[in-house]
């Protein structure tokens, strides 16, 4: 088999993954695109392993490791997306702008800086911290 076939297929899959990561708005759809990119890399690893016929089978072992790491990544990623959804009510990437740089005037206009640190903030369950947060989880002081 011509080596260019799997290599070109992998390159195109990777580019489709890049498009998905950049163009999608939902965080889970972005994770799907990341999976496509990882699959392109795996295809390359397997193709080059079959081409080089190495005794240690580095390519196939590394492809297996990549698959396992991808499984771990998708688990952690989905947990993070769920946490973000639970604390913000949305999983749109475009709306998660709390860490953006903002101008002084904008900060003045907003009054309180928008800083909900979620259920796992730095004051986890301390009694002394109760007066700093109202019931919506926002820090007021």
């Amino acid at each position: 088999m011509h080596l260019a076939y799997p290599a070109v297929l992998a390159a195109l899959l990777f580019s489709i993954g890049i498009y998905g990561v950049l163009a999608r708005r939902n965080a889970i759809l972005m994770l799907m695109s990341v999976e496509l990119m990882l699959n392109a890399v795996n295809l390359n690893l397997v193709a080059f392993d079959v081409w080089l016929r190495e005794t240690l089978h580095t390519g196939q072992a590394l492809a297996l490791f990549t698959i396992a790491v991808a499984a771990a990544e998708i688990g952690i990623g989905l947990a993070i997306v769920l946490l973000v959804y639970r604390s913000r009510g949305t999983s749109d990437i475009d709306r998660l702008r709390d860490l953006r740089e903002r101008s002084e005037a904008e900060a003045e206009a907003d009054g309180i800086p928008d800083d909900p640190d979620g259920p796992y903030g730095d004051d986890a369950g301390g009694t002394g911290s109760a007066k700093y947060t109202d019931d919506s989880g926002r820090q007021t002081a």
């Binding site: 947990a79 259920p119 989880g137």
Partner: peptide, 25 residues
């Protein structure tokens, strides 16, 4: 690594304890 990811995913997606939950949106 897989074990760490498993524990991490559980810890991240677990709901907080009851008094803590009242303060979340």
């Amino acid at each position: 690594l897989l074990l760490a990811a498993l524990v991490g995913a559980i810890v991240l997606s677990r709901r907080g304890s009851a008094p803590e939950q009242d303060r979340t949106p």
